[in-house]
């Protein structure tokens, strides 16, 4: 029971209180870049959840069974980014062979994910917070969920924004930033939660 409540608290923190995009500023490039249309936002979100969960799994294993026993912790950054890059490549190949429909939907987003700092960010955070194996995997999954949530919310707002009258100089990126600021204000409300 204690485990369940701990996991629940972790989910709330990762999705709302310490949302990866709005509170930790991780993964902003896809957040601004891929949030123009709702369906592409959904595709990107799914791909990110998948890769973040996988990346959390593998980087935790590499850190615990390779880097720490061999006293190579200083190679963490290099090892993790290589793991993520090869993982993304692998996922791309597997999806392409086994689920062509899914590949078509996610296709162009997959390579972009390598340079999504949320993925490397969650991998390093898992190690810094000294999570256990199961916690690390779940944290990766929840963080991806939080990312997808705000990405989809943002896409919904921006589709509406397209039709509204905005001063010419604020169109595009600037107004997206302002909207993100308002969303961050709303999410700041969650920080009062006592967990």
């Amino acid at each position: 029971m204690e485990f369940v409540s701990k996991i629940f608290a972790m989910a709330i923190v990762a999705i709302f209180v310490q949302n990866f995009v709005l509170m930790r500023f991780l993964g902003l490039c896809p957040y601004i870049g891929v949030s123009k249309k709702l369906d592409s936002a959904l595709g990107m979100g799914m791909a990110v959840i998948f890769v973040m969960t996988m990346a959390s799994t593998f980087t935790w294993l590499i850190q615990s069974y390779l880097l720490v026993p061999l006293k190579l912790e200083f190679l963490q950054t290099i090892a993790f980014i290589l793991t993520i890059a090869s993982l993304v490549q692998l996922v791309e190949i597997i999806i392409q062979k086994t689920a062509p429909a899914l590949y078509k939907a996610l296709g162009m987003f997959l390579p972009l994910i390598t340079t999504n700092c949320a993925v490397l960010g969650v991998a390093i955070l898992n190690i810094n917070e000294e999570y256990s194996f199961i916690e690390a995997i779940l944290n990766g999954f929840f963080a991806g969920l939080g990312f997808t949530l705000v990405l989809i919310l943002m896409a919904g707002i921006r589709e509406k924004l397209d039709k509204s009258e905005i001063p010419a100089s604020m169109k595009g990126m600037p107004i997206a930033m302002i909207v993100a600021g308002c969303m961050a204000l709303a999410f700041l409300g969650f920080s009062g939660l006592k967990i």
Partner: peptide
């Protein structure tokens, strides 16, 4: 706090466009 970063950035980008 976090929202301030987005707001300042958005306004500065708008200013650059202007």
């Amino acid at each position: 706090l976090a929202p301030g970063a987005f707001l300042v950035m958005g306004l500065l980008m708008g200013l650059m466009n202007l």
